[in-house]
Design a protein around this nucleic acid. Structure first.
Length: 700
DNA sequence: GCGATCAGAT
DNA sequence: CACATCTGATCGC
């Protein structure tokens, strides 16, 4: 929970994520995302009064946040005082003291934060230096290096202070399985259940908060089953989300809530009340998304844990892990870093002890030279299981970098924006409007990608539900491997053969796994954007502006070189070529009416197909010059206690190099590696792949 | 009656 | 394991 008090030392006349007390005097307000603990005072009468008196005071946030906020009647009084700023569009704001007329200019840039829909970080530039307020964030390792607007020329911007989400800034939370891993784990568990019969339903026991949407949309997309929720009007202008949700209880995936939901579930009753659509009783399992973390030296990291006959806990985190935080901060390397959150059991001082070494040393206040080309890691190398030679295919020429969107000046009272030239004036051709094409965000597209140590993704397994306990429930155990002991690239491991992994994974698992038939390498493939051009004349908000992609694929997402001139491309255009090769074959947008029993039964015919899909690709995280700075040996987290025996493999991954299984892959020669490193160091793309669907903003 | 705060639960 | 939220009790205006 954020304990940030609202003001930053450098720009005390603006308030962020706090709206009470001192903040009542602010000249401008900023909201990073729509979670209640960041909205304290936002609907208080005192602030409402202030607004009525100070007509030049505005609230700035992302378009998605604005939409979500204004959906609630409680905040409707803000309606004419919120200014949505597009992601990654430097925008000048005048901070005017209405009493004295005193004026200060700042340029603010919204950067995607990956925490929940609409979540952003705020980068402020002005006379008191450049500061970054992260809000809450979950960014995989290397994300910062791919954010163009954190850079200036070839360098990371000289950032004075970072106000940082330190929720998991404790070595205890050294690593958290990547978003894709968690998603995939949940997907396969859900799949294994709902394909059994139309009466097998899943209840996703989610909290009342934004942030699960990408889970819902991905499950819906992959399984062709809409997710039942209590409310969806907040997404009315976000078709990419909306189309995967339903308020019709007659579906197999539920994320509805009820105060006594847990009790209901004991009686096989869903929160929404349905027990059986017809005469047949439902068979329900519950999956509770919750944070799971693992210590630095923990190998086994199960993303799904069975907690009861029909209940599971699934790994899910809105916040960056300790190692992700360190990666982020050490890359930014500010003069100062301040925690927004003090993790339970820690003190400010203890958190500062962690942050300090990652900041610029007091002796040299010179900004560290961070040539973008060198530090830009994480060109994805995707090794298709069938086509290993993909590895060195299609190196793209290094594109011109730093196509910085033009700067906008906001005159709130006029709601006008005007373009300003920037120091690197490569102007976009688009108007400042809300067209998706104009705001495509490379880092947003990339955010799901993980170079984090635990993001190898090949070792998940699941067993068909029927395999355990007489078919009483699915007995899924999905796990990832991570070996954070190793911070040095281990190429042997990187190229570990898939069959080895498979064998290891199969160990201890129920016999019904069939290793055959599921060689298709991708569980989540990218797909062309859904419904971006939907009918109607409403405003559609896309994930361009949401900092959380609605769709996760297992394709390394950083394939889009952030150096590309991306701003004018739509995601469809970009993903078009690749998507053909993905086995997203079965995506059939299904409206609720179309989910017939017969259809579902058909789906249930081949449940075996759902397991043991091993991702067959490898990612290279090119960051040879980065040494993992962590010296805090994380306390070992206790062995995960699962109801099922935990399997593990010897596959290892390091913080910077993760190693999915790669069948038929060969060890690279030193020459290969050298070439590879060379390309990475110079910022060349090695193999690009793209995809990624985000909410689109389509204004009609 | 509402808000702020805290404890407790999920 | 935590997070973000909700509920209910208490206090004050």
């Amino acid at each position: 929970m954020s304990s940030f008090q609202g003001q930053m030392a450098e720009y005390p006349t603006i308030s962020i994520d706090r709206f009470d007390r001192e903040n009542l005097k602010a000249r401008a307000y900023f909201l990073s995302h729509c979670h209640k603990d960041h909205m304290k005072g936002l609907r208080a009468p005192s602030l409402k009064r202030r607004l009525e008196c100070s007509l030049k005071v505005f609230l700035y946030c992302s378009p998605v946040t604005k939409e979500l906020l204004l959906t609630s009647p409680k905040y409707r009084f803000w309606e004419n005082r919120i200014i949505a700023i597009e992601i990654e569009t430097p925008t000048q704001i005048s901070l005017v003291d209405e009493a004295s007329g005193e004026k200060e200019e700042v340029v603010v840039t919204l950067l995607p934060a990956g925490h929940c829909p609409g979540s952003v970080m705020f980068l402020f530039q002005g006379s008191n230096g450049t500061v970054l307020y992260t809000g809450d964030f979950r960014l995989a390792k290397g994300e910062a290096s791919r954010m163009e607007l954190l850079h200036s020329g070839d360098r990371v911007k000289d950032i004075q202070s970072v106000y940082l989400d330190t929720t998991f800034c404790d070595p205890r939370f050294y690593q958290i399985p990547s978003r894709e891993q968690c998603l995939r784990g949940i997907l396969e568990l859900v799949r294994s259940w709902v394909t059994r019969s139309p009466h097998h339903v899943v209840w996703l026991n989610c909290k009342a908060a934004y942030g699960y949407e990408y889970l819902f949309t991905n499950l819906s997309e992959e399984l062709g089953v809409q997710v039942h929720v209590d409310k969806l009007d907040m997404f009315k202008n976000m078709p990419d989300i909306l189309h995967h949700l339903t308020t019709d209880r007659n579906t197999q995936i539920h994320a509805c809530r009820h105060p006594k939901a847990e009790e209901c579930f004991q009686w096989n009753k869903l929160p929404c009340g349905i027990t059986s659509p017809n005469k047949t009783a439902l068979h329900t399992i519950s999956i509770k998304p919750s944070t799971m973390w693992f210590g630095e030296r923990t190998r086994k990291t199960n993303v799904i844990v069975r907690t009861g006959e029909s209940s599971y806990r699934a790994c899910f985190s809105f916040h960056s892990s300790f190692s992700e935080i360190k990666d982020f901060l050490s890359y930014i390397c500010p003069v100062n870093a301040y925690p927004n959150v003090i993790p339970v059991g820690l003190t400010v001082d203890k958190v500062m002890d962690v942050l300090k070494p990652l900041c610029r040393s007091p002796q040299s206040t010179e900004p560290k030279y961070k040539p973008l080309g060198k530090l830009k890691r994480a060109r994805t190398i995707r090794l298709d299981s069938e086509e290993d030679d993909d590895l060195f295919d299609d190196p793209l020429p290094t594109p011109l970098r730093h196509k910085v969107p033009y700067q906008l000046t906001l005159h709130p009272e006029l709601f006008s924006m005007k373009a300003l030239p920037l120091d690197q004036p490569e102007l976009r051709q688009s108007s400042g409007g809300c067209k998706a094409e104009s705001v495509w965000s490379p880092s947003l597209a990339n955010f799901i990608d993980c170079e984090e140590s635990n993001s190898d993704s090949g070792e998940e397994l699941e067993t068909p539900p029927s395999s355990l306990q007489g078919g009483l429930g699915p007995s899924t155990l999905l796990q990832q491997n991570a070996d954070p002991d190793v911070d040095i690239p281990q190429w042997e491991v990187f190229f570990k053969r898939k069959d080895e992994i498979t064998d290891e994974c199969l160990e201890n698992l129920p016999s019904s796994i069939e290793t055959g038939g599921s060689q298709s390498p991708k569980l989540c493939s990218d797909s062309p954007k859904l419904c971006s051009d939907s009918d109607g004349d409403s405003t559609h908000i896309s994930s361009q502006n949401s900092s959380q992609s609605t769709h996760i694929t297992d394709q390394g997402s950083q394939g889009w070189d952030s150096q590309c001139d991306t701003v004018l491309l739509s995601s469809q255009e970009k993903s078009g070529g690749d998507s053909a090769s993905l086995n997203k074959s079965a995506y059939k947008p299904k409206v609720k009416e179309s989910i017939s029993a017969s259809q579902t039964e058909q789906d249930a015919l081949c449940p075996q197909d759902t397991h043991c899909d091993l991702k067959s690709r490898a990612e290279v995280n090119g960051a040879p010059c980065i040494v993992e700075l962590d010296t805090l040996s994380g306390r070992k987290s206790p062995p995960e206690k699962t109801l099922l025996s935990s399997t593990h493999t010897d596959s290892q991954s390091s913080s910077d190099f993760e190693i999915p299984s790669t069948p038929e892959a060969e060890l690279p020669t030193p020459e290969h590696l050298q070439c590879l490193y060379g390309k990475l160091a110079t910022g060349q793309s090695i193999v690009l792949k793209k995809e990624n669907v985000h909410f689109q903003i389509v204004k009609k």
